[in-house]
Amino acid sequence: SDYEVNVNGIHHRFHNISEELIKFIEEALRRGEDLREIIKKVRELLG
């Protein structure tokens, strides 16, 4: 049904976003950045 496609589409989009965010955060932590600064950047990215 349309509803299922829609829900799956939304889930898929969020899954991709969270994968990208996790990579972004892991790389920043590897560079020794402060978690609070990383979260601030993530918030800015998400608008």
Rank of each mutant, 00 (worst) to 15 (best):
Y3R: 01
N8V: 03
S1N: 11
G32L: 05
I25T: 01
L21T: 14
K41Y: 09
V42R: 00
V5D: 02
E44V: 08
L35C: 03
F14C: 02
I17Y: 01
V42H: 03
L35F: 06
E4L: 06
D34N: 07
G9M: 02
E33D: 13
I22E: 03
G32P: 04
N8Y: 01
G32D: 10
R43F: 12
F24K: 06
G32A: 09
N6H: 10
R36A: 13
D2K: 02
E27I: 09
H15R: 06
I38R: 01
I22M: 06
S18L: 03
V5S: 01
R36K: 11
R36C: 05
V7M: 07
G9T: 02
D34T: 10
F14I: 00
N8I: 03
K23Y: 13
I38F: 02
E20S: 12
S1I: 14
R13M: 15
R43M: 15
H11P: 07
V42C: 02
L35M: 08
R36T: 11
R13T: 15
E26N: 10
S1L: 15
E33M: 11
S18T: 11
I17W: 00
A28T: 05
E4A: 04
E27R: 09
I39H: 02
H11D: 07
I38H: 01
V7A: 09
V5M: 04
G47T: 11
E4H: 08
F24G: 05
L45V: 11
N8K: 05
K40M: 12
D2C: 05
D2H: 06
G32E: 11
V42M: 05
I25M: 03
E33Q: 09
E33N: 09
K40C: 07
I22Q: 04
K40E: 14
N16M: 07
L21Q: 09
G9Q: 02
L21C: 09
F14T: 00
E26I: 11
E20T: 10
F14P: 03
E27D: 14
H15A: 06
E37R: 08
N6Y: 09
R31G: 09
L46V: 14
E33G: 07
V42L: 07
H12S: 01
E4I: 09
N6K: 08
V5A: 03
G47S: 11
N16S: 07
N8W: 00
V7G: 05
I25K: 00
I39N: 01
V5L: 06
E27M: 09
V5C: 02
S1D: 05
F24S: 06
A28R: 09
D2T: 06
D34E: 10
D2I: 07
F24T: 07
R30M: 13
K41C: 08
E19A: 10
E37W: 11
K23L: 13
L45T: 08
F24C: 06
K41N: 11
K41V: 12
R30K: 11
R31L: 14
N8D: 10
I17R: 00
E4G: 02
H11N: 13
I25W: 01
A28S: 13
R31E: 10
N8S: 05
R13Y: 15
A28Q: 15
R43Q: 14
N16P: 02
I39K: 03
L21Y: 05
F24M: 10
L45S: 07
R31F: 10
I38C: 02
E19K: 13
S18I: 03
R13Q: 15
L29E: 04
V5E: 01
L29R: 05
E44N: 08
R36M: 14
L21A: 12
E26Q: 12
I17D: 00
D2A: 04
E37K: 07
E19L: 14
E33H: 10
E33V: 13
I10T: 12
D2V: 05
D34Y: 07
V7F: 05
E27W: 08
V42P: 00
E27L: 12
R36H: 12
A28V: 05
I10F: 13
L21N: 06
H11S: 15
K40Y: 10
